[in-house]
Design a protein around this nucleic acid. Structure first.
Lengths: 118, 118
DNA sequence: CGCTGAGATATCGCATGGCTATATATAGTG
DNA sequence: CACTATATATAGCCATGCGATATCTCAGCG
């Protein structure tokens, strides 16, 4: 029931997910991972090998910026969404909603694929 | 406004889209391409370099089966969805709806990202 | 009749990006 | 002390969408 979503399915939305988490406030990598996992009831585990390269990419594109916090024993790199990042997120959200509607229409046009309630 | 959706966004749903078109009845490659483009108002153009390898892959997985029609001058390869293909499509549709709901929740949880109507 | 554009399929090679495995280091717990 | 959780990072693999390119047929036009 609550299996994780397939990697190929999530591809293309992961950036948006991470940005949407950061939109609520600064976070460090590990906490983003946890928040996403909890918010999706375990269906988006976002492994470290995906998360960190993704954050580096977003930073290289200036959609987020980071600073280290070495004050505690655990080195943490805090990330914050930038203004271009917010704009990008907004664009992605708009595009995503249009896409979701598009797919929904396609699925409903195919026989025998109506949602369970039908 | 009606730009095509980004490749990365569509990745992971293309198989499902093609299967959902074939669910309505047998089609040949070129006609699948046209139907998808029209049904999505040009936002899913599905170029030949994507379409044909995709069809070969689906056939290798036995989700669709094909036969040539050489009766007309134009060689056409007709595709038909199989029983396993229908089952696969149904699974993908269920997963996709769950995923879409999941993303919607994430986006609505982020400040300033509510749909335009809000 | 040759040219052009649409119809129709196919494949190569590149680019993107998610994942596993691995590495490193600290903190807390039995 | 061993083990788990916290915390970040990278190399290399793998899947797949796309542009470019190649064939071949047919319809229309001058």
């Amino acid at each position: 029931m609550t299996d994780r979503f397939s990697a190929e399915l999530m591809r293309g939305s992961l950036d948006m997910m991470v940005l949407s988490v950061l939109k609520k406030g600064p976070q460090y990598g590990y906490s983003i991972q946890q928040q996403l996992r909890e918010a999706t009831r375990g269906r988006v585990p976002l492994p470290a090998g995906t998360l960190y390269p993704l954050l580096h990419r977003l930073e290289a594109e200036h959609f987020i910026k980071s600073r280290w916090d070495d004050s505690t024993g655990r080195r943490r790199k805090w990330y914050e969404i930038t203004k271009p990042g917010s704009a990008c997120l907004e664009r992605q959200a708009v595009q995503w909603r249009a896409y979701a509607d598009c797919i929904r229409d396609l699925l409903e046009a195919a026989p025998g694929l109506r949602p369970a309630t039908a």
